[in-house]
Design a protein around this nucleic acid. Structure first.
Length: 425
RNA sequence: GCGGGUGUAGCUCAGUUGGUUAGAGCGCCAGUUUGUGGCACUGGAGGCCGUGGGUUCAAUCCCCAUCACUCGCCCCA
């Protein structure tokens, strides 16, 4: 197949969007660092078991959305559909369990074989954090607070709603599941077909149903709240208290359920109405049972993942950092091109962004300089070379002056200090 | 995976109740200006009308299939 299209649900990230992604990632990592989280990377390919054991075989992700392949040695490998299980695996593989707590952040592509839609791709990108080894609500609060700070840094906090819920500990959840299943079984025939299958696979998910008939039945269903044991209740209360202390607005949504098996206690989602049906922009929760399901020791954990594409779609142009305006070098004749390149190199060493204009026609080159939004054009022609100077033209004001070539670095350091991107001083 | 919509120039979109050379705006290139840009004017390039098949004297238009995107469901970030 030689179609010139990318494979379904796979998108090229062109410079415009790439900048948005980079901006989101930079902000998130920066803020994560303030909370003491370190960046790690885990492989995109993992043994299938890593996800199968932990996410639950009934979840859609495991049952139908994984890109699977066999290695030459016959091992079952999959493209990772999410980040948490891989990070947890890395904790165990590398024997990091000795020094808790562990605070990690990560970013990278994830893969799910789903029907693509806006905000739902087959290869998409997550930015996520995981906190291991803290079983108190303090961890939950800190993790949510970190998420909130990231959204604030992206100027998104106003357009997003934080919903939280608790799934309780294992005891509470098991108790509740029995109650709920018993109740729903009485209304089995009136449930939507989707919910009828969910009843056996993942009954808690029915709480989240959008079907009107289901919603009516659920009005009288037993509440998870009533099945919580005191430990679970206290935990949830502390989380709320912590969020209130930090003035993070939230709403309790008793119907909020996470799809993956490893979640317990806190579940939360930041959602938006701006993105159609893919409204969840960042979500996570607590997963105390995860490492044990993997065959390791029991290590409590909380974390979240944000969908970079979804966040990027919400960004407004004015919230993005304005790119630094470059300097444009124009050689009037071909024989002066290397002179121009030499000047460019001096300025690049000083941290300026310098674009060569590549042609030898002044009018054309000035046009090109405008197009790349250059602030100055540096013109090197016969006169300049003879006098060892360079014409520096401000493209906003039209003013221009002759600057001695050996002073060019200092000249721009003085007149255009903001232009020195990435310069280490 | 289920149900609906869309696919015409680089982008946003007209259009043809089936009929010769398929249009606009923006963008791009060139000229007016061979050492001075943005504005303006003039000209130009660029489409197998998503792809494959069918009906027809004739298909960009009708039919079928397929691919991609999109909306809702499902699921999830």
């Amino acid at each position: 197949m030689t179609s010139l299209q990318p494979a379904r649900g796979m998108h090229d990230l062109l410079p415009g969007d790439h900048q948005k992604h980079a901006f989101i990632i930079t902000k998130a990592l920066q803020i994560a660092a303030r909370y003491g989280f370190c960046e790690i990377s885990t492989p995109m390919l993992e043994f299938k078991e890593v996800f199968k054991r932990t996410l639950g075989t009934t979840s859609d992700i495991i049952s139908k959305e994984m890109y699977e392949m066999a290695s030459k040695g016959g091992e079952e490998l999959v493209l990772r559909p999410e980040g948490t299980a891989g990070v947890a695996r890395a904790v165990l593989s590398n024997g990091l369990t000795q020094s808790m707590p562990l605070k990690f952040c990560y970013t990278g592509p994830m893969f799910r074989y789903e029907r693509p839609q806006k905000g739902r791709l087959r290869q998409f990108h997550h930015i996520g954090i995981e906190l291991f080894g803290v079983d108190s609500a303090l961890g939950d609060v800190e993790v949510v607070s970190l998420a909130y700070d990231v959204l604030k840094a992206l100027h998104l906090e106003e357009r997003v709603t934080l919903e939280i819920n608790t799934l309780g500990d294992e005891e509470s959840r098991t108790h509740y599941r029995t109650q709920l299943v018993a109740y729903l079984n009485d209304h089995l025939t009136k449930l939507s077909p989707d919910s009828q299958t969910r009843l056996t696979r993942n009954p808690l998910r029915i709480l989240d149903s959008k079907d009107e008939g289901d919603k009516r039945i659920l009005e009288n269903a037993p509440l998870l709240k009533e099945s919580l044991n005191t430990a679970s209740e206290d935990m949830f209360a502390s989380v709320q208290e912590g969020l209130q202390t930090l003035k993070i607005p939230f709403r309790i949504n008793p119907h909020l359920v996470r799809g993956l098996d490893y979640y317990c206690h806190l579940a939360f989602e930041f959602t938006t109405t701006d993105l159609g049906s893919q409204g969840t922009v960042l979500a996570g929760g607590r997963y105390d049972g995860l490492t044990r399901t993997m065959g390791g020791p029991q290590i409590p954990g909380v974390g979240w993942a944000g969908g970079i594409e979804r966040l990027a779609m919400m960004l407004r142009e004015e919230d993005l950092p304005r790119p630094v305006r470059p300097l444009a070098v124009i050689a009037m004749e071909e024989r002066f091109s290397f002179k121009g390149l030499e000047l460019a190199e001096v300025l690049r060493q000083e941290g300026f962004r310098v674009d060569m204009t590549y042609e030898n026609n002044l009018g054309k080159c000035l046009k090109k300089s405008n197009k790349i939004n250059a602030l100055y054009a540096l013109i090197v022609g016969e006169e300049e070379v003879r006098s060892h100077k360079v014409t520096c033209k401000n493209l906003d004001s039209g003013e221009q002056m002759l600057v001695p070539q050996e002073e060019i670095g200092q000249f721009f350091k003085d007149t255009y200090p903001q232009g020195r991107t990435g310069h280490e001083s």
